[in-house]
């Protein structure tokens, strides 16, 4: 279903949606949203583009391999960030207490590791959701599961 208007608009929308998703992710501790919602938004943008350009185009960038890498990066990243605290001698997932910079409350880089964790979740969710939809739309079957930590 290739359509010139659609694909052109999708080309403009994709960066916008991605930026919005990134905003939602990184401001999870300040405003509604967070890693999950933001990740879904990014995935939605990608899906929109893929739908209008065709999934085979998307496969050049986001194939099973790279999606798997992103998936693992996000989810392992979350656990590893949690483990950083452990290695610094505090409890698992400890944030400020483990020496993550607290920053200024109300600003972007506040709340220590929260936005890092959010980013990890966002990457994972975006990759997974896009992978799910891509799989359902373009063949393949057995699916993975989404872990929202």
């Amino acid at each position: 279903m290739h359509d010139l208007i659609l694909s052109t608009i999708a080309g403009y929308l994709l960066p916008l949606i991605t930026v919005y998703g990134a905003y939602v992710i990184t401001h999870g501790h300040l405003s509604p949203g967070g890693g999950f919602a933001g990740g879904t938004i990014i995935a939605a943008g990608l899906i929109l583009a893929a739908l209008s350009w065709g999934f085979h185009h998307a496969e050049k960038v986001f194939n099973e391999n790279s999606l798997g890498n992103l998936d693992t990066l996000g989810s392992s990243g979350y656990v590893l960030i949690g483990l950083v605290a452990v290695f610094r001698g505090s409890l698992f997932l400890t944030n400020l207490g483990a020496g993550f910079p607290s920053g200024t409350p109300g600003k972007l880089f506040s709340s220590g590791a929260v936005w890092l964790l959010g980013a990890a979740v966002g990457v994972k969710v975006a990759a997974t959701v896009f992978g799910l939809v891509a799989r359902i739309w373009s063949g393949g079957g057995a699916s993975g599961e989404v872990d929202e930590p």
Binding site: F36, R135, I136, G141, A142, S143, E145, V146, E148
Partner: peptide, 19 residues
């Protein structure tokens, strides 16, 4: 929120099974 996440993962999985 978690419930929604779980619902969508269940849905995706169920759909994959259905296919």
């Amino acid at each position: 929120l978690t419930g929604i996440v779980i619902a969508v993962s269940t849905t995706a999985f169920a759909l994959a099974l259905a296919i």
